[in-house]
């Protein structure tokens, strides 16, 4: 997403409940560069979304927040088309 949208969209990766060392090693191995990797050490934010609960695939969890800080998208799957459609919608507003 960062490559597609550049500066227009801020991408944040959030590691859930793992050590900084593990998250860092993973980021380097995955060639992640220039994108903030945040640490949700106790999973508090991860669990704060209303779709959290039973019967879900735990990861990935993807969230889009609009220019005003309002959540417009929550998905527990990696649906590139849906994410791009939502970001395009927000950028065209």
């Amino acid at each position: 997403m960062a490559e597609v949208y550049g500066e227009e969209v801020q991408v944040l990766l959030v590691n859930v409940e793992e050590s900084e060392e593990m998250a860092y090693t993973f980021a380097i191995e995955a060639d992640i560069s220039g994108i903030p990797v945040l640490l949700d050490e106790h999973g508090g934010l991860y669990r704060s979304y209303s779709s959290a609960g039973q019967g879900y695939a735990p990861f990935p969890l993807q969230v889009i927040v609009d220019q005003g800080g309002v959540i417009t998208y929550i998905a527990r799957q990696h649906d590139v088309a849906a994410v791009r459609a939502e970001l395009d919608r927000l950028l065209s507003e």
């Binding site: 991408v11 944040l12 590691n15 220039g34 969230v63």
Partner: peptide, 27 residues
């Protein structure tokens, strides 16, 4: 922010004005 390993604080509120795509992950 890899490749840098130095830790800093991030606040979602600092990104107001831009859409933010947040991806939660584990290793």
């Amino acid at each position: 922010v890899p490749p840098s390993a130095s830790t800093e604080r991030f606040d979602l509120a600092d990104y107001r004005g831009r859409p933010v795509f947040i991806a939660y992950f584990t290793t």
